[in-house]
């Protein structure tokens, strides 16, 4: 049971990010609160509508010694992408043909805009670089990084098929909240197919400066990939298998 003393506004803000009212009640939101809300929404909208800065990302990847190539989903433009998420999951056939690899890959890595190209640009290259180093150190083949425009998670399944990759990692911008537009989400799928369900993916979310940091996220992703290659499973099935393993090792 709680026995807490008087809380300062700072104490309260440490407990919750909720937009509580500290001033007078019984009237409309005051001007500064109202304008701040509109500004936060405008920032979120800007992040949603932003385009992936491919040259900047490719330059950052190149500096880390990583080659990259770019694809655009069947959605084509930002507006179509937002209204037609189904098209954002598809890779045009002509694009798929350009992706063919000489030999199959262990892991395909995608960096996509998703619902915040700003998040992809801010946190994407660092995550992809950190994960690539870990995978290469394990002797896994990853091929070129694929930058994907107007893309949802499932486009990774098509890219992986075109590249003959056994596992696919899609890092993309999450839907911006009112307080944060820089969150990167990572989805990992083993042996993806066109019919893969979301329940077959493992996810690491809220990757940003004030959330899960890039280094931790890359480590978690590496562990997931290793576990997938060992068990041949991903998503809910993998989580269940891992939970069982944990229980087994605890009882040992």
């Amino acid at each position: 049971m709680s026995q807490l003393h008087h809380l300062s506004r700072q104490d309260i803000k440490a407990l919750t990010e909720a937009r509580l009212t500290f001033g007078p009640r019984g009237r409309a939101m005051d001007t500064s609160t109202s304008l701040q809300f509109s500004l936060d929404h405008a920032r979120a909208r800007e992040a949603v509508l932003s385009e992936l800065d491919v040259p900047r990302i490719q330059k950052a990847l190149k500096a880390a010694g990583l080659d990259s190539q770019t694809v655009t989903s069947a959605a084509g433009t930002r507006d179509i992408f937002i209204r037609r998420p189904d098209l954002g999951r598809l890779l045009p056939e002509a694009t798929a043909e350009t992706l063919h690899n000489e030999s199959p890959l262990d892991v395909a890595l995608l960096l996509a805009d998703g619902l915040s190209a700003i998040a992809a640009a801010l946190n994407g290259p660092a995550f992809v670089t950190a994960l690539s180093k870990r995978l290469l150190a394990r002797g896994l083949t990853i091929g070129k990084i694929v930058c994907a425009r107007q893309a949802r998670v499932a486009i990774g399944d098509r890219v992986a098929q075109a590249l003959g990759a056994e596992t696919v990692v899609v890092a993309l911008g999450e839907r911006p909240g009112l307080s944060a537009a820089d969150s990167l989400g990572v989805y990992i799928t083993h042996r993806p197919k066109a019919t893969t369900q979301d329940s077959a993916r493992n996810c690491i979310s809220n990757i940003r400066e004030a959330g899960t940091n890039v280094v931790d996220a890359a480590e978690q992703a590496e562990q997931l990939i290793v576990a997938m290659r060992e068990t041949g499973l991903s998503g809910v099935e993998l989580s269940m298998a891992r939970a069982e393993n944990t229980l087994t090792s605890q009882s040992d």
Binding site: R19, T21, G26, R27, T33, F37, D40, S179
Partner: peptide
Amino acid sequence: TVPGADDIMLNYQSLSYHDAQY
């Protein structure tokens, strides 16, 4: 209704307590 129209868990905007008062 939610505080300041911002649902910090579901990450979407609903009405604020002030909106109900309005």
